[in-house]
Design a protein around this nucleic acid. Structure first.
Length: 696
RNA sequence: GGGCGAGUAGCUCAAUCGGAUAGAGCACCGGCCUUCUAAGCCGGAUGUUGUGGGUUCGAUUCCCGCCUCGCCCA
């Protein structure tokens, strides 16, 4: 059974795209993909010529061809440190080798010349006029890939409001999806829901024991919240903090209360009782709020696999059988783990025959319960279609743009698609989960799924913490020793953190103030739409500008800033380019057509020409940066690139007054420059889920 | 105790497989709105890249030791 939907929206931000059905699979969104890649094509041409030149002199498989950027654009467009590499094998000075290479290379199509620079760099110079025209036309394309990639992100426990840390996860994950799709991959998006875990149990305990509510009582409570217009995830945020304190509040009660928690957890896992029904009601309502929150910043999901179905459809039983058969799990007979089913941890010595392996990872406890890692192994076997079991599917939500979001169920709807069958996966999970993630990978490897283990990517990133200043501004008590720290970790258990919706509300409010002041003539709906795009731009850029290994010390002031290295700065550059075309009375596409017959060579020479060319060169690198961002799974590269391109455009904007340019040929060049800069800025922002408003 | 990550300008962060003069933003000081929008542009000052060694034509980057911080595991 396959999904029949004719078209679904890629996202609220990117707009509609037509769907293509991947053979019998539901994940179907296909983006047009990049078409302009002049920078990397010329690099390829250069590499091929070098290989031809060096063919008889060195073993090509040993040849490492790397390309760098000369420090200044006057020095050329490509810098190759190859002469340094060859210096040892040829026992010659790098400069001398570089000289010989320049002579041997001769003329290369698209290049105006080569020279030796510095201590022995081989610098290549593009024919600027030809490259610019080729780039303006934009005919090249990236190859399509056949493999199916599954990205999982967000995965918030459905027991409280989303906070800034979850925003980082979702924005990184959603951006990864957009990057992969931009590079012509087929990508599915899912959001794992742990709806039977201890965190949901905690909120259920809060409702049943602190609030003394039964099932009808909880239903009434939810109706009352809705009537008052209160967010249930916010209410649960407070309940969760309260119950966490309650467990430890009275020492003599501690054990009894923890037992209540454990009993509740077991009731949730078993299902089919009032406690489980309460959990189902509350967690689903909170989940719907999470979907709303993420949709506000342009993020959609296609499938929501839940832990309840992993339990009730007995995924673990199937996985357990496989794990035993392949010998990955064995039952420990002595030591602290006696009676447990354990797995040897990678990098440890293991059992020596006489002594038990104390380092082994427990997968099934001696009382027969399965650990989280155990369930995760089963779940990942499903992702790679190695489990032999499948979820049922039920339509859960339809986004305004038409995108469908399905949820796991015990039985499938008639028209249900199926998910999974991944060739490769990316799990967007913070770095604290590295150990459990590696356990799952090792289990898969141990079962003989070597390729699967290779294609399992933990997309790891550091947490978002609060600066002490920010924490105090938000009214939290900060201990003296915490005040001296650079940042303080957020904690749902303590109710300590910045809620995602609060931050988004603040960003929209701050943007609205600016838009109202600048554009009082616009009607309120337009102003609101503009403010929303600016807020999304600011938030998404803020979360993407840091590399993944950086702990973001969240600061409200920085996050609310629209100046300097921010999303709105990049958006503003696009708006300014749009203003040029509006006043000029032509479209960017027309500007590029008019550029066609123009010989731009005179305008790409001299100091002014250099700075103009620098902008073209940078603009032509967008696909190169896209590929690098994917290869290194580091979206921050793209964020930095977009900012740099916007910076150079702003510089251009001030340096050249396009509309008053008297020389018609020069004016055509300047208009084309604005057009390609705008085109690449829009693309780069789109890959990051950002869009510039029409006016700012 | 073991594992992973980090330490770069006053602050927050970049820096391609090791590459040319280590770059941005913020903050600070001084200029620029009669021009396509000042959410902008130009100029100024700021560095023993934690520390000690090693590898080499070349080290913020790789290796080893030490120090500090964070996270995970027991």
């Amino acid at each position: 059974m396959c999904w029949k939907a004719a078209s679904i929206a890629a996202s609220a931000v990117a707009g509609r795209t037509s769907a293509r059905i991947r053979n019998n699979c539901a994940y179907s969104v296909k983006h047009p993909g990049p078409r302009h890649s002049v920078y990397r094509n010329y690099r390829q041409v250069l590499f091929e010529r070098l290989r031809a030149v060096l063919q008889d002199k060195v073993r090509l498989e040993d040849l490492r061809l790397t390309v760098e950027e000369p420090p200044q654009v006057e020095m050329g467009d490509y810098a190759l440190p190859i002469a340094f590499e060859l210096a040892r094998t040829f026992r010659k000075a790098p400069r001398k080798i570089a000289d010989e290479l320049v002579a041997a290379i001769g003329n290369v199509p698209g290049f105006s010349g080569f020279e030796v620079a510095g201590a022995g760099y081989l610098n290549g110079r593009l024919d600027r006029n030809a490259a610019a025209h080729r780039f303006a036309e934009g005919q090249e394309s990236l190859p399509e890939t056949r493999e199916f990639i599954l990205v999982e992100h967000t995965s918030i426990n459905p027991n409280k409001a989303a906070h800034v840390g979850h925003l980082r996860n979702a924005i990184l994950g959603d951006t990864l999806v957009r990057l992969l799709r931009a590079a012509n991959s087929t990508v599915g998006v899912q959001n794992y829901i742990d709806n039977t875990g201890v965190q949901v149990a905690d909120v259920v305990v809060a409702l049943t024991h602190l609030q003394q509510l039964d099932l009808p009582g909880v239903q009434r409570w939810m109706r009352e919240l809705a009537a008052r217009g209160e967010r249930i995830d916010y209410a649960c945020w407070d309940l969760y903090a309260k119950v966490s304190q309650w467990y430890d509040a009275e020492p003599e009660q501690k054990q009894a209360r923890k037992q209540i928690r454990l009993d509740t957890l077991h009731a949730l896992e078993a299902g089919g009782n009032d406690t489980a029904s309460i959990a189902e009601l509350v967690s689903t309502a909170v989940l719907r709020r999470h979907l709303e929150t993420m949709f506000r910043i342009g993020i959609e999901y296609e499938f929501l696999p839940r832990e309840s179905e992993i339990l009730h459809l007995h995924f673990w039983d199937a996985a357990f059988a496989l794990l035993q058969r392949t010998g990955v799990l064995y039952q420990e007979s002595e030591g602290k783990n006696a009676g447990c089913w354990v797995m040897r941890r990678a990098g440890t010595a293991g059992a020596d025959g006489e002594n038990p392996d104390e380092e082994a990872k427990v997968i099934v406890r001696s009382n027969g319960t399965v650990t989280y890692v155990g369930k995760d192994i089963a779940y990942h076997l499903w992702k790679f279609n190695k489990l032999g079991l499948n979820f049922g599917y039920r339509l859960f939500h339809t986004y305004p743009g038409g995108g469908q979001c399905w949820i796991s169920a015990e039985q499938s709807d008639e028209s249900a698609p199926h998910f999974g069958h991944a060739d490769a996966i990316y799990n967007v999970i913070d770095s604290r989960q590295a150990d459990p993630q590696n356990n799952v990978i090792e289990a898969l490897r141990g079962m003989g799924y070597t390729q699967v283990a290779e294609n399992y990517h933990h997309f790891s990133y550091e947490m978002v913490a609060l600066t002490p200043r920010c924490a105090m501004e938000l009214g939290y008590a900060v201990s003296p020793e915490d005040q001296d720290r650079a940042y303080i970790e957020v904690s749902g258990r303590k109710g300590f953190g910045v809620k995602a919706d609060d931050l988004i509300d603040k960003l929209i409010a701050a943007a609205t103030v600016q838009v109202d002041a600048r554009h009082p003539e616009l009607d309120p709906a337009d102003r609101e739409s503009i403010a929303r795009k600016i807020a999304i731009g600011a938030l998404r850029y803020y979360m993407l500008r840091y590399t993944r290994t950086t702990v973001i010390a969240f600061d409200m002031q920085d996050a609310l800033s629209f100046e300097g290295e921010t999303g709105p700065y990049v958006q503003y550059a696009i708006v300014r380019a749009a203003n040029i075309f509006r006043k000029a009375g032509i479209t960017p596409e027309q500007a590029l057509e008019q550029f066609g017959p123009v010989d731009a060579k005179p305008y790409f020479t001299g100091e002014d020409g250099n700075s103009l060319w620098e902008l073209w060169l940078l603009a032509s690198k967008s696909v190169h940066v896209l590929e690098k961002a994917i290869q290194t799974t580091e979206p921050a590269h793209l964020a930095k690139y977009a900012f740099q391109l916007a910076q150079q455009f702003s510089n251009f904007y001030h340096r050249h007054h396009v509309l008053t340019e008297a020389d018609p040929a020069r004016k055509a060049v300047l208009l084309a420059t604005a057009a390609i800069a705008q085109r690449e800025l829009i693309r780069a922002l789109g890959w990051m889920g950002m869009e510039a408003p029409d006016v700012m």
